[in-house]
């Protein structure tokens, strides 16, 4: 089972086994692979059943660690606005926060009528919107429309070869937000260019 996985990610495994003895580029690509897996998990865990909160929280905390690590060790040729770390436009924690909030609204009840002795939760904990299908809201909050255009404007394409293909012809929203199917190859390509690695 995982044998197949190992072959698929043999580069990852070796790096992991080498226990942090990689160069910055290797570390970064490892972290980005983890980030990719984690975000994929967040997206794929949306189903007809309430997801496991334990799994969600553990993935969330892993993502936060990754975020902190990526922030601490910026790549050498990092552009001024890193792709996954832009605090204003594209905050990972805000994304996860919104996911947990959605989770909350979909799982929590406003009150427990047949359970009067149970202590009521803190006031105002139930959020008004209770949309069980939060894929749309997830992707829209995750890649906020407002921030994304600005972000792509910020890319300094003068440092890389002048390829007109680099600027996506269609709005970038389509590129990223097909629910459940991330165009990772394209994202990788863009990330490679942005990070100059």
């Amino acid at each position: 089972m995982v044998g197949g996985l190992k072959r698929k990610h043999s580069d990852l495994e070796e790096e992991e086994e080498a226990k942090w003895s990689w160069g910055p580029a290797g570390l970064r690509s490892y972290q980005q692979a983890l980030l990719r897996i984690s975000l994929d998990k967040v997206q794929h865990s949306l189903g007809p059943r309430a997801p496991s909160l334990r799994r969600h929280v553990l993935i969330h905390n892993t993502l936060q660690q990754l975020q902190a690590a990526l922030r601490l060790a910026p790549a050498p040729a990092l552009p001024p606005e890193p792709l996954f770390l832009g605090e204003e436009d594209f905050s990972l924690s805000a994304t996860i926060g919104s996911i947990l909030r959605e989770l909350e609204t979909s799982m929590d009840e406003a009150e427990h009528p047949p359970n009067p002795v149970a202590l009521p939760g803190p006031p105002g904990e139930a959020l008004p919107q209770a949309d069980p299908v939060f894929l749309e809201s997830l992707s829209s909050q995750y890649l906020g429309d407002s921030g994304l255009d600005d972000f792509f404007l910020d890319i300094d394409t003068s440092t890389v070869e002048k390829e007109p293909v680099l600027a996506p012809p269609q709005p970038p929203h389509n590129l990223f937000c097909a629910p459940g199917s991330w165009e990772w190859n394209e994202l990788d390509h863009i990330m490679e260019i942005i990070l100059g690695s």
Binding site: V57, S93, P116, A118, L119, P122, E125
Partner: peptide, 17 residues
Amino acid sequence: RSFNIVDIKPANMEDLA
């Protein structure tokens, strides 16, 4: 009826860790 004896739910679910 039941008595709630432990509640670790944070006031804001964004703080859930």
